[in-house]
């Protein structure tokens, strides 16, 4: 393996990767965001612009990650896309048609699992299907297929409180996919999991995405996660939330954890890091120097 090249450019794409992106952009646009703005009015009457004039689109079967510093309006954006919040101005278009309010065509996976605790795993997955008017038997057989896909068929009769965090989130993914959404919105879905489970879930998710015709928009604050999963990474800027850059990840697919040390990966990761953690200004706050230890007892 080549040693990571400190000067390698994240914009340099291998021919196969460049070809992939070219093909990707020829696919139909699934979700388009036009001039999306959301302002909040605080209790004191001040207007706070959470998101300003956002424009971007995702192509069919694209895996897009959304990353940004805290307070950049990531969650506001995904709630607007899901229809759980109303934009102040601008539009969200799904397959070219403007959408309002939540619907099953935009599935969502939340950080807090949000499984229905009174329903078994199977019945959780059946929920969306039943809401679409599917009859009980069809819903059940379809739900079982989705549980097979996430590898939890054995646990179909368990209740959510009996599952681990990773298993809960796999049920949530199966539940969201069961209604055949055009796009799957994921709001920091693995944020509450431990590092090991999280890595495993990333593998699972890529595998599921390969096998299902679905576009994914994935919010994260983890640079490695974004680089590892995404075709393109949408980097937001805070105060107000605006699109800072859309990065095409030059890491070839299929992805594996071994790619974490490749030059493309590191270059991309470094670029995101620069964008969301700009160099700290020296005029910023510093801690006062107060010494409470004995001289000669230094740790560094």
């Amino acid at each position: 393996m080549n040693p990571p090249d400190a000067n390698s450019d994240y914009r340099r794409q291998a021919p196969a990767v460049a070809e992939r992106f070219q093909k990707l952009k020829q696919r139909p646009v699934v979700l388009e965001v036009r001039d999306l703005t959301r302002t909040f009015v605080t209790a004191t009457g001040e207007e706070v612009v959470a998101l300003r004039s956002l424009n971007f689109s995702t192509y069919r079967r694209e895996f897009m990650c959304l990353i940004g510093p805290s307070g950049c309006g990531k969650s506001t954006l995904i709630r607007l896309l899901a229809g759980l919040d109303e934009p102040t101005s601008g539009q969200v278009l799904l397959d070219g048609a403007s959408v309002q309010g939540p619907c099953a065509a935009r599935g969502m996976v939340f950080q807090g699992y949000t499984l229905f605790p009174w329903r078994t795993v199977l019945k959780n997955v059946m929920f969306g299907l039943l809401m679409q008017g599917r009859n009980h038997d069809t819903a059940k057989s379809e739900a079982l297929q989705w549980l097979d896909l996430v590898g939890l068929a054995k646990f179909k009769d368990a209740y959510p409180h009996q599952l681990s965090g990773g298993m809960k989130q796999r049920v949530a993914i199966a539940r969201a996919l069961a209604t055949n959404p055009r796009i799957l919105l994921m709001d920091e879905p693995f944020g509450a999991l431990d590092a090991q489970t999280r890595a495993q879930m990333q593998e699972y998710l890529l595998q599921i995405w390969r096998n299902v015709d679905v576009t994914i928009l994935f919010i994260t604050h983890d640079l490695d996660e974004a680089t590892y999963l995404a075709d393109r990474i949408l980097v937001l800027k805070a105060h107000p939330g605006e699109v800072q850059e859309i990065i095409e990840v030059p890491v070839p697919r299929p992805r594996s954890q071994a790619q974490f040390a490749t030059p493309e990966f590191l270059a991309t990761r470094r670029r995101i890091d620069e964008l969301i953690h700009p160099p700290v200004k020296s005029t910023g706050e510093k801690l006062p120097i107060v010494r409470l230890t004995v001289v000669g007892d230094d740790v560094e």
């Binding site: 759980l84 969502m108 939340f110 229905f116 605790p117 009174w118 929920f127 969201a176 919105l185």
Partner: peptide
């Protein structure tokens, strides 16, 4: 829990079904 309502809405549950299938059982 409002999060359960939102989850149900993104799964296509309409207002009347929300009451019967989400709010009351929860």
């Amino acid at each position: 829990d409002p999060a359960l309502i939102e989850a149900a809405q993104t799964l296509g549950a309409g207002p009347r079904k929300l009451l019967l299938h989400v709010i009351i059982p929860s």
